[in-house]
Write a protein that binds this DNA or RNA. Sequence first.
RNA 1: GGGGUCGUAGUUCAGUCGGUUAGAACGCUGGCCUGUCACGCCAGAGGUCGCGAGUUCGAGUCUCGUCGGCCCCGCCA
Length: 585
Amino acid sequence: MTEFLGDWKRTATCGELTASGAGSSQTLMGWVKSIRDHGGVIFADLRDRYGVTQVVFRPETLPGDQMEQARQLSFEYVVAVRGTVELRPDGMRNPDMHTGEVELLVAELKMLNRAEPLPFLPAEEPSASEELRLKHRYLDLRREACQKVFALRHGIYQSVRKCLSEEGFLEIETPILVRPTPEGARDFLVPSRVHRGKFFALPQSPQLYKQLLMVSGFDRYFQLARCLRDEDLRADRQPEHTQIDLEMSFCSEEDVFGVVERTFSAVFEENLGVRLPVPFPRLTYDEAMSRFGTDKPDLRIPVELADLTEASSTSGFSLLEEAVKAGGRVACLLVPLQLSRKDIGELETLAKAQGATALFWARSSGTDLEGGVSKSVGGALQKRLLELSQGPGTVLLTAGARAFEAAGAVRSGLGEKLRPGDSAFRFGWVKDFPVFSWSEEDSRWEPTHHMFSMPREEHLEFMEEDPARVRGRVYDLVCDGVELGSGSMRIHSPELQVRVMKVVGLSLEEARRRFGFLLEAMRFGAPPHGGIALGLDRIVMLMAGRDTIRDTIAFPKTTSASSLMDGSPCQADEKDLKELGIKLV
RNA sequence: GGGGUCGUAGUUCAGUCGGUUAGAACGCUGGCCUGUCACGCCAGAGGUCGCGAGUUCGAGUCUCGUCGGCCCCGCCA
């Protein structure tokens, strides 16, 4: 049987009663976390968002019919109890509970709702598979650990809004129904009923709109923007995610960095009590690739790559010499650890996934090389390796066109073993990204970031002849090996915009057809501007110490982009399709 | 699109070399218990071994396919 609240009012949460409240009358409401029925007296732990309080049902103080009801209670029943806060007897206090000094002696019980046996209990540690927890997401979210993540997420929203407002940014919403874009990720398409046969897209980001807001003279804009992409998922990628999107006019890259650094300082200070050292270190893309083999280095790992291409060309080791002759490079990682064959095998898998043919290794004593390829390497290479190795450890080598990427993957893979246990939150800026990268698949140059990013002025002269050399005023924010955000100074000249579009294969007509509104806006007085988009879900993930952004999204999708809870996506009704003029093929 | 891994009771798992009646814990049901906090004790119910083929005298176990979860590559401006 379930009852209505009637005139009952909650007077305290389940997390706040302590010894100082002893003697007072209180009304608590919450979920039964556990029940201990001793035949006579019954103890129950009552839980809500704020905590847990023990309530006591006694035959001496509770009417018989309600005592019977108390005996029916089970996991996750929803109840309201009125009673007196009592100090627990000596020896019965629970020091592990914030409310463990007291208990509520129940004088009146109202059973607000029953709960059938649950597929799993919302315990501290997840007791069921993620699959089952996603199916009953509302139950999983009852867990304290989950609620903490969303409280943190809420706190981050507040800090961001406060900080950016103080910096003079205006929060402005941009459309959710937008023009489909041919570039970049796959769009989610939304059919228009009014315009049969025509489609909106859901925005991959507010990119064009925020640039237009700069043309409008808003000077500083931000938005906690939902971004939607119909691409394959990963632990850190969902089809819909939230970005802290911002854009500012009359600014330099350093202005953007400053705003972001101040915002992150506030976010971390206010929500974790962590003081971030600012400014964050800046490094160029080329530097990041040569030192770390990745554009999102984990700066906590105290080991960097070495370029041994030249020393390898006369190493006497034919595999390396051939790789160098073929135009490849040789990257080296000196690890101050005695890695086992098994460790090296696992690392080799990582290197191969990045295109390396092998991961060569040898043990170093500091003065000699042994094992692995130690017999094969000679000459300058052996000398260099011994120079570089500061003491006993393992030497790892990769060769080929993507030697540095492969060694970088190995370095990241070693992260757990190499970084100090207490380190976290090492931020950094990676800047001067290449503007164009060659697509083997489409045999054309495509924008590395997006085609609205400003190339470095001094590189404009060879943009058409040698696009690969062009570096842009493009930057990423990285933290602990995670890409947290990406931005750039934008092109505000229509002529330059058309030039860039041409390099990536868009004819003038095509550019006008797809981006005419942007090119037109640029002709009517677009200010120099730039900005960044920061992945909020990843920020929450990092701050909460989770491994996947699913944990930071209230109702996430599985890796096959479906929702186990509501069964979406699902087939549409024939009637709806007809009205939209859509026929399935 | 590709690779890896997992799928057995409501849940988490065990299940030997392919062998006859598939187990445990928690949960559930019934009973007992007036100071527990993972309460305790007694008894009981509960299985499409993800699904479909195949091999075999015999398949939870082997093979192939398929569906689903997770991780990775491609993809993700």
